[in-house]
Design a protein around this nucleic acid. Structure first.
Lengths: 204, 204
DNA sequence: GTCTATAGATGGATAGAC
DNA sequence: GTCTATCCATCTATAGAC
C-alpha cells in the first residue's frame, strides 16, 4: 500500500508519539534520529515538524504525558479506596497495598514510557527537567503521606519516611527489569510477592 | 601551560578512561562525542585512537572493569567474613548485612561507573552485552545464594529467592538516586536504614 | 604519541512545491 | 499535511606529518 504524496491522516500525531516512545526506550533519545522516527511512521522527516517544534519538545511531551497520567490514575484510585468503613489503621494498610499493586500494574503496562521517564531525565533541557521533577515529587509524596499516616497510627515503623518512600519505589521499579508477561509468574502473583516484601519492610 | 606538539604522558590512557566515564555518566554514551572526551583530556580526537580501537570498545572496557572490580571486591570481603565462629543461622544474617552495607558503600563510591553500568546496556553491541550480563548475573547469584541458605536454615522467608534478590538489589540501588555525601545522613546511617528494611523484608 | 587535516556519513531543522 | 531537496553542523574514524 504505497503512500501517495499529499495523503495524510488525522492520527499522524499519535503515531509519531508512539513511534518516538518505542524508539527512545529501545535506543535512547540521543541515539534516535528524527529520520528514524519518521521512517517508523511512514512519513518523511520534514513532516514531523508539523507536530512538534523540535526533538526536545517531543521528548518532554512524552515524559510529561506519562507523569500526568500516572498521577491522575493514582488519585482516581486512591479516592475510590477511602472511607470504606475500616478503622484508620486498617485503611492505611489497605492504601499501602493498593499503592503497591497499582504501581506495579501501571508500570508494567507502560514499560517504554516508564523507561524513558527515568532514563532520559539528563537529556531534558533545564526548565523541562524542573517540570518533570516536580511531577515525580508529587507522586512520591503520595506514598510518603501513607507511610507517615502509618507511623503516626503506630501500624508502621520506618526509620525515615522520605528514604523509605524512595526505597519502596525503587524496589517496585525493579520489577521492570525482569518481568515479562507470559513468564513463570502471573501479574497477580508478582503483585503479591512484592506486597509481601513491602509490607514486611515497613511494618512496626 | 600550553601543550606542545609531541608531548605525551604515560597516564593519558587512564585520563581518557576517567574523562569518558564522567562524560558518559553525565550526558549518556550516544550524546558524548570523541571530540568532547579528547577535549576534557587535553588532546585532539585522533590521539584517542592510540588507546582504544573505537568508541564502543571504550564503553565496554569501562563497564567490564567496573563489574569485574565489583565482583572481586565482594568475593574478597565475603571470604573474610566466613568462619568467624558463629552458628550457621547467625552467619547467614551476618553475610546478608555485610552484603547490604558493601553494596551501598561500593556503589556510592563510584556513582558514575554504576550509572553507566545499568544505563548504557542498550548501547553495547550484542556480544559485549552478553559479556556484561554474565558478570551482572554472577553478582546477583552471590546475594541469591545467601538468601537460599537463609531459607534453608529457616532464618529467612522469601516467596521467591530470585525475585527477592532482584528486589533487594533494586532497593539498594535506589540510594544512588538521592544520596549526596555531606547531606543530612552519614554513610553509616544510610547503611543502617537500608539494612533495617532489607532485614525485615526477607526475615522469617 | 600527538598533531593537523579530512574523508565520508549522518544529524536537526528549514524552504518551497504540490 | 506531506513531499523533495538542501543547508549547515557535527560525528567517527583514518592518513600522514612531525
Amino acid at each position: 500500500m504505497a503512500r501517495t504524496q499529499g495523503s495524510h491522516s488525522d492520527i499522524t500525531g499519535p503515531r509519531i508519539r508512539a513511534a518516538a516512545l518505542q524508539l527512545f526506550a529501545q535506543h535512547g533519545y540521543a541515539a534516535v534520529s528524527m529520520r528514524q522516527i519518521a521512517s517508523a511512521v511512514g512519513v518523511q522527516a520534514g513532516a514531523l515538524y508539523n507536530y512538534t517544534p523540535d526533538k526536545q519538545s517531543l521528548l518532554f511531551s512524552l515524559m510529561e504525558g506519562h507523569m500526568t497520567e500516572l498521577l491522575a490514575a493514582w488519585r482516581a484510585q486512591d479516592s475510590d479506596n477511602r472511607g470504606d468503613g475500616q478503622d484508620a489503621a486498617g485503611q492505611v494498610m489497605a492504601r499501602l497495598e493498593a499503592f503497591t499493586r497499582f504501581h506495579i500494574r501501571f508500570h508494567l503496562e507502560r514499560p517504554d514510557a516508564v523507561f524513558i521517564a527515568y532514563m532520559e531525565l539528563r537529556n531534558l533541557s533545564e526548565e523541562n527537567f524542573v517540570a518533570i521533577e516536580a511531577l515525580r515529587r508529587e507522586y512520591e509524596d503520595a506514598l510518603q503521606s501513607i507511610l507517615r499516616d502509618g507511623v503516626r497510627l503506630g501500624v508502621l515503623n520506618v526509620p525515615d519516611p522520605k528514604i523509605a518512600t524512595l526505597a519502596v519505589i525503587a524496589m517496585l521499579n525493579g520489577v521492570m527489569t525482569w518481568y515479562r508477561s507470559g513468564g513463570r509468574l502471573s501479574l497477580e502473583e508478582v503483585e503479591s510477592i512484592y506486597w509481601d516484601m513491602v509490607r514486611k519492610s515497613v511494618q512496626a
